[in-house]
């Protein structure tokens, strides 16, 4: 693990509306994730986890504060300091609770497209996509349409896509929710390996107690505020989703 920061948020806040209708979704959230580190973000529904994740994922800009990825300032308040779409393509991998696959592409094509968008040739992208899917246990479903995959298989395809471009940041929202314990652990270990091998910072929103031991740190969020931080997890009590 490096001391270099993969992700750093400095007092980011997100406020919707104004005046009487003002809603503070996230307030002064400051988190640091080092390269090679995997952290968990816990909290009840509506606590602001998704707002935080989408702010770090550069798809929902914060109202104030700064987001730095790999030492580069990417968001300064609501203002983008880089080309966000290009930055997302190159540096960020996403895995969401509900599988987010493109229905008109097969399993392998869903992974392949992420690499092709990043400039990789079709052949090379297909080879790597096949390797990733095989590694995640869906190597026998490469050309299946997404509708023919189970929830768990779809989730593994989404994980493979997130890993495809060797991102420096991986953001995952309940990535193991649809997986059995073995696969869930496998995915988390995969995240940890990617984090270690490629120096990526990984933020996982999870409730899966079976996998908590893989995290290097746990952040808890409530009412838009990150108020608890644990490092070196041994056992943790995970609050139930409200």
């Amino acid at each position: 693990m490096s001391d270099e920061l993969a992700i750093e948020t400095i007092s980011i806040s997100k406020i919707y509306g104004s005046g009487n209708t003002e809603v503070v979704a996230m307030r002064d959230a400051s988190v640091q994730v080092r390269r090679g580190e995997v952290i968990a973000l816990l909290g009840p529904s509506g606590s602001g986890k998704s707002t935080f994740l989408t702010a770090v994922g550069l798809i929902n800009p914060p109202t104030s504060g700064q987001v730095r990825i790999g030492g580069t300032l990417v968001m300064d308040g609501p203002r983008a300091a880089v080309n966000l779409r290009s930055f997302r393509r190159r540096h960020i991998g996403y895995v969401f609770q509900k599988s987010n696959l493109i229905p008109f592409l097969s399993a392998i094509e869903n992974v392949q497209i992420a690499m092709e968008l990043n400039g990789m040739t079709s052949r090379a992208a297909r080879t790597r996509a096949a390797e990733l899917l095989d590694e995640l246990g869906v190597g026998d479903r490469l050309d299946h349409s997404t509708a023919m995959l189970s929830g768990g298989q779809q989730q593994r395809v989404a994980v493979a896509r997130a890993l495809a471009n060797h991102p420096s940041v991986i953001l995952a929202d309940e990535p193991t929710a649809a997986l059995d314990s073995h696969r869930g652990r496998q995915v988390m270990e995969l995240f940890r390996n990617v984090a270690r091998e490629h120096g990526a910072g990984v933020i996982v929103v999870t409730h899966d107690q079976r996998t908590l031991e893989v995290f290097d740190a746990i952040y808890e969020m409530e009412d838009g505020v990150i108020h608890q931080q644990k490092r070196k997890v041994e056992s943790a009590t995970v609050p139930e989703r409200g």
């Binding site: 798809i59 779409r85 290009s86 997302r88 393509r89 190159r90 996403y94 987010n100 696959l101 493109i102 229905p103 008109f104 497209i113 992420a114 968008l117 990043n118 896509r161």
Partner: peptide, 18 residues
């Protein structure tokens, strides 16, 4: 019909020309 897929493509960084 493709709105969700288009949003997803944008999320993973697809350029406008795609």
């Amino acid at each position: 019909d493709k709105i969700h897929s288009i949003a997803l493509l944008k999320l993973i960084g697809a350029q406008n020309h795609v």
